[in-house]
């Protein structure tokens, strides 16, 4: 069976630019190399056609150890490339059956790829996740939220039977207030950070089963910013992290990432 081509990403191809780093490919056997397409180059490695056929991959992708190892390889490869050159990262397991079909893809997206690379030059992607301790927030809200306080004062004047019902309602009000507060905290902070950035995107939040944390994820976003603005961006996050941790917030910034979220071709 003929060899396949695994595509990591597209980098610029200009005389005198940094060399694309050398490392072992996805199968840990073949070396990674580049294919030139004018001002662009594709970072690829060869894969054995039998071992990585659709059939074989179907099997492999059901083995979690394989997915974990190879997904991390793909990611680390892109991190390594990113250290030397701007890169348009491909999704995990982007594989071409032949050189000609890869060429066809690149030629048909060439203009867009050139624009993207120009846009990504000297930029960094950073991701932000905000978690919160909902129980703690609720306690705080019950102690300090004006809406809740007013309601509680009102309940105190009621008959005991009525009080029971109203207290349960108040509990619901408290939950709603906490939701509002979470939303406001995250969107306000997101707006503040956006000021430093060229682009940003809000992502889905994950449940505790996915994150493995005992606190709830309430915000997940990605930012594209100029390298020179990163310091200020991170300083803003550090400040917010310190300010907000006593009230039950956890803020995590990670990066720099390959620009996974900002290299859209469509």
């Amino acid at each position: 069976m003929s060899d396949l081509i695994y595509l990591y990403g597209i980098v610029p191809n200009h005389p005198g630019q940094n060399e694309c780093p050398a490392f072992k490919g996805l199968d840990q056997t073949h070396e990674v190399y580049t294919l030139s397409y004018g001002t662009l180059a594709a970072v690829v490695c060869t894969l054995d056609g039998g071992e990585y056929s659709e059939e074989a991959l179907k099997e492999k992708s059901n083995q979690m150890e394989w997915v974990q190892e190879k997904a991390f390889h793909h990611h680390e490869a892109l991190l390594t490339i990113r250290e030397a050159l701007p890169v348009v990262p491909m999704k995990f397991c982007t594989i071409y059956a032949s050189r000609s079909s890869l060429t066809e893809m690149i030629e048909s997206h060439k203009e867009k790829l050139v624009d993207l690379l120009a846009r990504l030059e000297d930029k960094e992607e950073w991701n932000l996740k905000i978690y919160c301790d909902t129980a703690k927030l609720k306690e705080e809200a019950e102690a300090h939220n004006l809406t809740i306080q007013a309601k509680r004062d009102e309940i105190a004047t009621m008959s005991p039977g009525r009080q029971y019902l109203e207290k349960r309602k108040l509990d619901q009000v408290a939950d709603e207030e906490v939701e509002k507060e979470k939303d406001a905290f995250c969107t306000d902070f997101h707006e503040e950070l956006k000021a430093f950035c060229e682009d940003s995107t809000v992502k889905d939040t994950w449940n505790k089963q996915v994150t493995g944390k005992d606190v709830e994820m309430c915000w997940n976003s990605a930012y594209l910013l100029a390298t020179q603005d990163v310091e200020q961006f991170l300083a803003t996050i550090t400040k917010m992290k310190e300010q907000s941790s006593p009230s039950g917030w956890q803020i995590e910034a990670t990066g720099p990432w390959p620009a996974y979220h900002f290299a859209n071709l469509s």
Partner: peptide, 22 residues
């Protein structure tokens, strides 16, 4: 979580020739 959500979900999708049903 960060790595998987980005590597598997994001990145540029100009699907290759080989379909991988993750």
């Amino acid at each position: 979580v960060d790595v998987l959500e980005t590597v598997l979900d994001k990145g540029v999708v100009i699907a290759g020739d080989i379909r991988v049903g993750l």
